[in-house]
Every structure is written in C-alpha cells, then in structure tokens.
C-alpha cells in the first residue's frame, strides 16, 4: 500500500487506475488489491458501527447477569436454564461469557453484519459508480470477485473475534476466571478453556462463510447496495424461520443456519465432531454454489455504472 494513499481525495477508484508495466509491480498490485479492499471496508463508518454494536452485546449480557445475580442468586429464570446457552454458568466463570455472547449473536447479529458487508461489496460499488473504475485496473473480474469474497471472510473472522474478545474482557472484569467444567461434567484448565474459546470463535466464523457467499451473489445481481443488503438479511430471516417449522424437517439439514449452534459441541468432552463437520461441509457447499454463481453472473454482466 506504499503505492497509494487510500485517503487520497480523488476517491478509491482512481487509485487502481495507475498503469502497471513491470511484472513485479503487478504482483504488488495483486497483494495490494486485497489490502486496499480491506482498508476501504474496515475504514467505513458503517463497518465500524457494526463492529461496535457486536462488541456491545457481551457488555450488555455481562452487566445484565451481574446486576441480576448481585444478590447471590443464580442466573437464568429461576435457575431453570432459560436464555442463551451457558447463561447459568457465567457467574462462576467469566470465560462462559464468551460462549454465551457467541450463542446470542450467532443467530442474528453476526450474520446480519456479514450480510450487510457482503451485500454491499459489489452492489455498493456499482451504486456509487466506482465499480467500472475498479475494473479498468488489470485485475480481471474473477480476481476482483475473489478479493471481495476474501474481504468478507476476513470480516466474518474479525466480527466473531470482536465479540469473543469483548466478551472475554467483560467476563474477566466482572466475574472470576479459572478452571471450568465442560458441559459433559469433566473439568479442564483455564488455558485449555481459552483454547476452546478460540476454536469456538473459529467455528462460528466458519459458520458465516455460507451467508457471505450468498450475500456476494445477491450483490452481483443488483446495482443498489441497499437492495442487496436488504435481500441478504431478508433471506437470512426467512431461512431462520424455515428452520423452526417442524414440518420441514427433511429440508432443514440443508439450510445454512441449521448447524450454527453446533459450536457448543466443542465444549463437550470428548468433543462431538459430527455436527461441527456437517456445518463446515454445508458452509463450504454454500460457498461453492453461490461463489460460482456470483462468478458466472459477475463475469458476464454488463457493467454500466
């Protein structure tokens, strides 16, 4: 990124217009295409606001649990185990706030944020008239699409880690830390607990790559960023509802949200891999189908904006 200052007043599209002559310069260009893309995405106020909202969820949950259990009672309604997973354990071990926060954000907040970023990826550029400038650069449409998808996947991981780190910080501040009991009843040390928390964050991030591909595909269909975001989030809600209807149980294993909560299986001892594997396979399938559909659409589309 030494080549160009992304905050140049002419706008981002111009940055990629510089002619590439030498092969070495082209390699730099490829690397910096992703770097540029990441920088542009993560510098947007919209992205930062999304991440701030995600970081606020564990804070809210942590404070709510702290206030609620200030008198020494256990968390959850009547200790009966309502609310998101692991809620009843937070007061005993702050690390559980990580799991609770992820369980609370994975059904909606996280995929919604990913849907917004993915939906905006191409449609937003088309909307603001910068897409054709991006394509003037010798990157090729396929590579541009791949870069966009890589950016969205990086956002998936970042968003999940933001939730996890925020939760860990709040958990450490408000509650004691230490050895923890797995949901199978065995005990593991704090270090292993942290390792599992990281694995869980990665599992959650992997759960989102299907939505990311879907959002990117929708983004190639329209020239309006808002329409693409709304469609992606709308599809997300529809799929979540379909996943709740018992009559559709034959269909449900193929819905991208079906195994989202399988990350909790990492807290079993021994770890129950079946659903975790299925989740990753399913997300890879969605990424392949909608990624290639996005490619087919984007490489054949008339770019007029």
């Amino acid at each position: 990124m030494s080549r160009a200052d992304p905050s140049a007043p002419q706008g981002r599209g111009e940055l990629r217009e510089e002619p590439q002559t030498a092969r070495t310069r082209r390699t730099t260009f490829r690397a910096s295409l992703l770097g540029n893309e990441l920088l542009t995405t993560f510098r947007r106020w919209r992205t930062l606001a999304l991440l701030a909202v995600l970081a606020a969820v564990p804070v809210l949950v942590g404070i709510a649990v702290k206030v609620e259990t200030g008198d020494g009672s256990s968390a959850g309604p009547g200790g009966g185990g309502g609310g998101p997973a692991f809620l009843s354990q937070i007061t005993n071990n702050g690390l559980f706030l990580v799991f609770t926060a992820l369980a609370a954000t994975v059904p909606f907040f996280l995929p919604m944020a990913v849907g917004v970023v993915a939906g905006d990826a191409l449609a937003g550029e088309a909307n603001s008239g910068t897409l054709r400038y991006l394509l003037v650069a010798p990157a090729g449409r396929g590579r541009l699409l791949l870069t966009k998808y890589a950016t969205v996947v990086v956002f998936c991981v970042t968003a999940t880690l933001v939730v996890a780190v925020s939760a860990l910080t709040v958990g450490a501040l408000l509650f004691p830390l230490g050895d923890l009991t797995t949901i199978s009843g065995t005990r593991i040390g704090f270090a292993e607990g942290l390792g599992r928390a990281l694995l869980i964050a990665l599992a959650v991030a992997a759960s989102l790559i299907g939505v990311a591909a879907l959002g990117l595909f929708v983004s190639t269909l329209t020239g309006s960023g808002i329409a693409a975001m709304a469609t992606t989030v709308g599809l997300l809600i529809t799929v979540q509802i379909l996943d709740q209807i018992p009559q559709l149980h034959a269909l449900q294993p193929y819905l991208f949200s079906h195994y989202w909560l399988s990350f909790a299986d990492l807290m079993r001892e021994p770890v129950y891999w079946d659903d975790l594997t299925k989740n990753v396979e399913l997300q890879a399938l969605y990424a392949a189908v909608f990624g290639s559909a996005a490619w087919a659409r984007f490489t054949t589309k008339d770019i007029t904006a």
Binding site: A103, S184, G185, L261, R268, Y272
Partner: peptide, 8 residues
C-alpha cells in the same frame, strides 16, 4: 450423557 442443544 444425553446430548442436548448446547447442553448435556
């Protein structure tokens, strides 16, 4: 162990 959703 009876495996339940996010619980056991």
């Amino acid at each position: 162990s009876l495996l339940e959703n996010a619980a056991e």
